[in-house]
Design a protein around this nucleic acid. Structure first.
Lengths: 139, 139
DNA sequence: CTCATGTCAGATCAACTGAAATGG
DNA sequence: CCCATTTCAGTTTATCTGACATGA
C-alpha cells in the first residue's frame, strides 16, 4: 500500500494487531463479554482471591480500570468483593461459581479466535511467530 | 503472568504492539508529529495529489480521520487542498514543499524507531518476523 | 433513486493521568 | 511523614459509527 510503511516492522505489527484485535473484540462482544473482564476472571482463577492492586499487576490493567471492571463483574455476580480484615485499604476480589463457569465459557471463545487469527499461517510459522513475539513482548 | 494468556498469539501480538506503539508514539511526539499525519504525507508523496477518499484508502484511515488530520496538516502548510474541477464532491490534497521536507525528516525518526523496536531480535528473527507478519497482516 | 464524498459530533478502550480519601 | 490502595473525574489516541449536506 504505502511503500514507506508496508515493510516497517512497526507498521506490520500494527496491521497484524489491528486484525487480531478486531477478531477478538467481535468474538467477545458476540459472547456478551469484554477482554478486561476476562483478564480479571483469569487472574482470580489462577491466583485465587486478590486485592485489586495485585489483580491489576497480574493483568497489566490500570488500577482505575480494575475498579470499574470489577464493578461490572460484581453486578453480574461473577466476582465478589470483601474488605481485607488484615489491611483496611484493601478489597479482596474472588471468583464466584458463576464466574468460574463464565471463565471456562470464554476460554472456548478465545480458543476459536486464535485459530481464526492464525488461519493464514502454517503450523511452523505459528510456533515461530509465538517464539519471536515472546522475545519482543518480554522486552 | 497469566497462564491463560501469555502464550496466546492474540495476547503476544497485543503486548508486542503495545511496546512498539509506545516507542513510536514517543518518538513522533518528540518530533512534534503524529502517525496519522505521517501516513498522509507519505501517501501524497508516493501517489501525488489525491482526493481525501483515495487518501483514506491508501493509508487505511477512515475518511473522517483523513478530514481532521488534513485540517492540521493544512494549518501547518504541509499540504494544500483544492476543489476537484472534475468532481464537485471532491477535494484534492497535495504536498507542499514544506510537507515534502517534513516527510523526509520524519522518515529519519521512523528509521530509528525500527531499530529500537527490533533490538531484542537477531537479524534472522527480524526477517522471519517481517515475513510472517506480512502474511498475517495481509489477510 | 442510489451511491460517493467530505464534515461533524461522539462513542469506545487487550487505555492513561491526576487527585482525593483512607489506611499502613 | 511517606507510601499503598481504591475510587472518581477527566483526558488522549487510534478506530470507528452515524448522520448530514452536496453532488455524480
Amino acid at each position: 500500500m504505502l511503500e514507506r510503511l508496508d515493510q516497517r516492522p512497526t507498521w506490520l505489527l500494527g496491521q497484524a494487531h489491528r486484525r487480531s484485535h478486531a477478531l477478538l473484540q467481535e468474538a467477545f462482544a458476540r459472547a456478551g463479554a469484554r477482554p478486561y473482564g476476562y483478564r480479571l476472571l483469569a487472574a482470580l482463577e489462577q491466583h485465587g482471591p486478590l486485592s485489586q492492586a495485585d489483580a491489576g499487576r497480574h493483568t497489566v490493567l490500570d488500577r482505575s480500570d480494575v475498579s470499574a471492571t470489577l464493578d461490572e463483574l460484581e453486578a453480574r455476580r461473577l466476582v465478589e468483593r470483601a474488605p481485607d480484615p488484615a489491611d483496611g485499604r484493601r478489597k479482596i476480589a474472588s471468583l464466584t461459581r458463576a464466574g468460574a463457569a463464565e471463565l471456562r465459557r470464554l476460554d472456548g471463545v478465545l480458543d476459536e479466535i486464535q485459530d481464526a487469527v492464525l488461519a493464514p499461517l502454517t503450523a511452523r510459522e505459528r510456533t515461530e511467530l509465538a517464539r519471536i513475539l515472546t522475545k519482543l513482548a518480554g522486552a
